[in-house]
Design a binder for these strands. Structure first.
Lengths: 229, 229
DNA sequence: CGTTATTGTGGAATGACATTCCATTTATGT
DNA sequence: ACATAAATGGAATGTCATTCCACAATAACG
């Protein structure tokens, strides 16, 4: 389908994969993951569901395409910093922020492993790990850990944000709720949870996120004590 | 609803939250996340959907309950090992394996943060971090990083397994597909992905997972060089 | 310039799903 | 026995992704 080998647009205001993906991104951003329905999409594009299916295989395909478009933008925009560590931090923070802004990206990333968006990220981080001088047999573990951490935390962070929004709480109220819930746990069974309950209330997710990145980077550099030249 | 203050079961073979949750777990395990429908559930329990709604608020509630049940089992079963690091590894591996066996647990964990299953895990790991002598102001970062890593990787691993099963590939074929896809990427744009493509083919997910855990543990112990007494 | 394939469109139809409603049935306290 | 509350199960509702198909616009060819 859609073989337009050497042909121009068939109709002036015609449908196209790009137009559909763009509309999907807008829909996802404004109404969240559940806001992307074929009904809403066809209304926005003033057409029928059938026409959309001519350009796109199914909803999952659509989600992947939207996800790829957004990730590709960020990964390419991220500025290259001075040191490999700084670059990794920048890439990580960039992803954290995109996923925070487009929470649906988090969920979509899991579904198609080994493909576009994931590979882009892998490549970017992998090059920095190489630049750090990590021996080749340890590179895979290092990149794997970083990616899992970055995607895992960003995703969870985005999910929390969405949950709070859904329940009509703002961030402060939400954290307050969690904090009080934890501090009311049984002191014998949950001493640790109680002890950190207070810290939850006014923590900065981005700071915590970066702290974790540094932790992993330190672990990567640690055995050879080679973190900085 | 369901106030049974000082009453016994009303009917012999009656419905109950537990029976419903148990059936849901079986259904989820046998037919995956999409296999849990109220239709299938009411058939298995030989009742109607309405009866189920008397005991359970909605599907999300049901999923959370099932998730909690499974996680609680594992967390409590996990043996306490000699050192805190070993215990953390054991807990981590335990979770990795449960999520691998019940892939739906991974997805369900994200949806209700700050509540039961998450807190159980947090507590368990937190206690070990304390035992490691990590200063209190760094405990939150350490536990957060570990949890994000454990849940993130386990989840992705389970998702991969499911994806492979859905597409009717076995693990080897799947890895092979990814590996060849990566090795056919543009060498200029994707040098790193190409370089690790080969390693993908015969790697052990559990080993990689533990390598990441060790990386983080090393990072936690590193600044004070206190990993082992 | 007209005819015919091909490529695209959009609306109606299908079947699965979560959830709600409500007329009944069952147990418990009086 | 009888009243009341707890439970039940099946039918009804509305939304969703996806498929189907009659049709329109374009290109390809004579």
């Amino acid at each position: 389908m859609a073989k337009r080998a050497h042909s121009v647009q068939r109709r002036e205001e015609s449908l196209s994969r790009e137009r559909i993906v763009e509309a999907s991104i807008q829909l996802l951003d404004s109404s969240g993951e559940e806001g992307l329905t074929f009904r809403a999409l066809s209304e926005r594009l003033s057409t029928g569901p059938g026409a959309i299916y001519w350009h796109i295989a199914n909803k999952s395909d659509l989600l992947t395409a939207a996800c790829d478009a957004v990730v590709a933008r960020t990964i390419n925009e991220t500025i290259v910093a001075r040191t490999p560590e700084a670059t990794i931090r920048a890439v990580a923070l960039g992803l954290f922020d995109v996923i925070d802004e487009h929470p649906w990206v988090g969920s979509a990333l899991t579904s198609v492993p080994g493909l576009s968006p994931i590979v882009r990220i892998l490549e970017r981080i992998g090059q920095q790990i190489r630049a750090l001088g990590v021996p080749e047999e340890q590179q895979w573990a290092a990149v794997g850990a970083l990616m899992a951490y970055i995607l895992g935390v960003s995703r969870q962070n985005a999910a929390n944000g969405q949950l709070a929004r859904t329940r009509g709480l703002d961030r402060a109220d939400f954290l307050d709720a969690v904090s009080t819930a934890w501090s009311q746990l049984d002191p014998k069974e949950y001493p640790f949870a109680r002890s950190v309950a207070g810290k939850i209330r006014d923590h900065d997710d981005r700071v915590d996120f970066l702290a974790g990145i540094d932790l992993i980077l330190r672990g990567i550099g640690s055995p050879r004590r080679r973190l900085r030249p």
